[in-house]
Design a protein around this nucleic acid. Structure first.
Length: 259
DNA sequence: CGGCATTGTAAA
DNA sequence: TTTACAATGCCG
């Protein structure tokens, strides 16, 4: 007589388990949600290694978000094979950034194609790597900032992903002004600065963020901000589905010694 | 200081 | 597509 009750219970629990497992799939960025941009239209581009919120008005992404796992961060394949293949993104309406827009900007303005989601974070998969080179994952970025302090921060992120198993990263441009410098015929926006937000969950959740000007090249410790600060500066809300209890614990502190 | 890994540019 | 070259910064 207990048999059918047992079966019912087991079926129910199994269903519950399936539901719980799929819950993270149903909401973006593993349940944390994509950044919220108010009063601006953004086209969401879902790629294997990252998701971008692209602004057709600015011709650059407003945010790029991804989950960086230890496995992905440790992938050994060189970014030089397959060959780097920067290219415009046909998924996005014209006018859009082209290689010609960036060409010459390096000599004239010392600007380079700055990955938002780094190629090195996408080495774990050929398709992910290839998609990291789409121009919708780029912003015109000062060459020294790009290969200097920003690269150092990106390396730290990969080390933290290995240490903690996984981290969540959101990177994008800072747009202080109403009018921006642009490059090329398609008027690709040159952002005034950049932000990066790194979140870790697990037993001891923490968040650290950076804000810098496009051209800064100091020690990256000078540019550390809290989640609250970077949200105030950018006007974006990050990880909107993050448990408010966790958010309250981590939003007003950012110290590298906690990592 | 040179070696190395990352970020890039550009020419053929 | 392939190849060569430049800047940054860590590490020994």
């Amino acid at each position: 007589m207990k048999t059918w009750q047992h079966r019912f219970l087991i079926a129910f629990l199994f269903g519950l388990l399936l539901w719980a497992c799929s819950a993270s799939e149903r909401t973006p960025l593993n349940g944390l949600g994509y950044p919220v941009v108010s009063n601006e239209k953004v086209q969401v581009l879902q790629r294997k290694g990252y998701t971008a919120g692209y602004s057709a008005a600015l011709k650059i992404p407003r945010w790029v978000a991804w989950q960086l796992t230890a496995e992905h961060a440790q992938a050994a394949q060189s970014r030089h094979k397959p060959a780097r293949h920067y290219r415009e993104d046909s998924e996005v309406p014209k006018p859009r950034a082209t290689l010609d827009d960036y060409r010459g900007a390096s000599k004239a303005l010392n600007l380079s194609r700055g990955h938002m989601c780094p190629a090195a974070d996408c080495k774990w998969d050929a398709q992910a790597f290839d998609e990291s080179n789409l121009l919708t994952n780029m912003c015109p970025q000062d060459a020294a900032t790009n290969s200097g302090m920003w690269n150092r921060i990106e390396i730290k992120c990969r080390q933290w992903a290995v240490r903690y198993g996984e981290v969540y990263v959101v990177t994008g441009p800072i747009l202080y002004h109403q009018k921006h410098v642009t490059i090329g015929k398609n008027k690709v926006t040159v952002p005034e600065g950049f932000y990066k937000v790194v979140l870790r969950l697990g037993s001891k959740p923490a968040c650290i963020a950076w804000v810098c000007k496009n051209g800064d090249r100091g020690k990256n410790g000078q540019y550390i901000n809290t989640l609250e600060q970077v949200e105030r500066i950018t006007g974006l809300k990050f990880f909107p589905q993050l448990d408010p209890k966790i958010r309250n614990r981590i939003a007003s502190t950012a110290q590298e010694k906690d990592w």
